[in-house]
Design a protein around this nucleic acid. Structure first.
Lengths: 196, 196
DNA sequence: CCCTTTCTGTTGCATATATCACAAGTAATC
DNA sequence: GATTACTTGTGATATATGCAACAGAAAGGG
């Protein structure tokens, strides 16, 4: 079946570059089968922003995302060791010549993955559309808290990266975190945070 | 076929409320068949933000989007007269008892719609993740310009709403717009804007 | 193990952005 | 045609956020 879609599986180590959106060659999309990765944009001034957090089932690819301004680079980088399945995206929509019985199954699976992606992006928009650092933090913390089903959770990345994730300055974010702690809204120890 | 999915079509007028994310009753998703609508969030302080712009083919629904903080309300509102098709979302993933031949076609169509949605949301994230009002504006303008294939384009909504769309204060945005004009980066007349 | 690098935490200061307020222009309603 | 509501445009001022810089803590590499 995987042959039918020109699928290729590859493994990566932490910090490896999985994908570069600027390379116009392939129409491949990647699906994370193991591990976690980040979609990162670095603009012309060198400011880097975490656009998406991908975990198992995460999908990415030039054809199904950002138009991508020429000015800035965009790439997918491993946060942990990853296995990634690459498949030819347009192929999914083509009628399978061999009347491949698995075809419709793949389409159904892809639908599920794309629905999950849309949901993840919606959460992302929810955070980024908040007006202040404080609200962005609280919005994101609530999301993590809900995901875990607990008041206490652990950030998936460093505080520095968190700043890139909510698209603000790190020191300003630290200041706001301190305030939140002082006011008793949250408790925190390193990357472990509790909503009060 | 539409019977098979408990589909219901309804028409709406401008400013009509199409959907309220807080109503936990239905698992329906809506698909815009005609017209344009906006997904709007109004937070506890009354600040409203345009989360998504939906046009023909746009999909929305509680089950496939935001976890939705209890604090703020979220709804879909018509920007123009709309026809909307509602279908039962979980139904799509169920095996069709009647071995409905159209089922796999619907899944394939939904995949296309969800892929489009993911792409639209990615563009949204691209804009919102910019650090300054200026960059948000320019990023959004470039998107519109690319969509139109021209340097000149017309904003889909009022300048006030544009501020809600890029999640900033209106007067601050107006000031930045003025600066962009003065510096000759853009030209503008009402909602018609040209990138220079 | 030491050395290097990244991460955390914090400050003073510059600047961007939000708030509030007002007035003219435009569109919509009756 | 008058009234209302909304939009655009602009300013003075307060505040939040960004920037640059530093030092200790922690983590990673040879």
């Amino acid at each position: 079946m995987l042959d039918c879609f020109q699928a290729v599986q590859r493994s990566f180590r932490t910090d490896d570059l999985i994908y570069d959106f600027s390379s116009k060659e392939s129409n491949a999309v990647g699906i994370i089968e193991r591990g976690e990765a980040s979609v990162i944009r670095i603009d012309k001034d060198g400011v880097s922003t975490v656009l998406e957090e991908l975990s198992v089932g995460g999908v990415f690819g030039r054809t199904l995302a950002y138009a991508g301004s020429v000015r800035d680079s965009m790439e997918v980088v491993c946060r942990t060791p990853c296995d990634v399945l690459f498949i030819d995206y347009p192929h999914i929509f083509k009628r399978c010549e061999k009347a491949c019985t698995h075809h419709s199954l793949l389409v159904q699976n892809m639908l599920r993955l794309m629905a999950d992606k849309a949901q993840a992006l919606s959460l992302r928009v929810d955070v980024l559309s908040r007006r202040s650092i404080r609200e962005k933090l609280l919005c994101y913390f609530r999301q993590l808290s809900e995901q875990e089903g607990k008041q206490t959770f652990t950030l998936p990345f460093s505080l520095s990266t968190l700043a890139d994730y909510i698209a603000t300055d790190r020191s300003a974010m630290m200041r706001e975190l301190k305030r939140l702690k002082e006011e008793g809204v949250i408790r925190s120890d390193g990357r472990k945070i509790t909503l009060c």
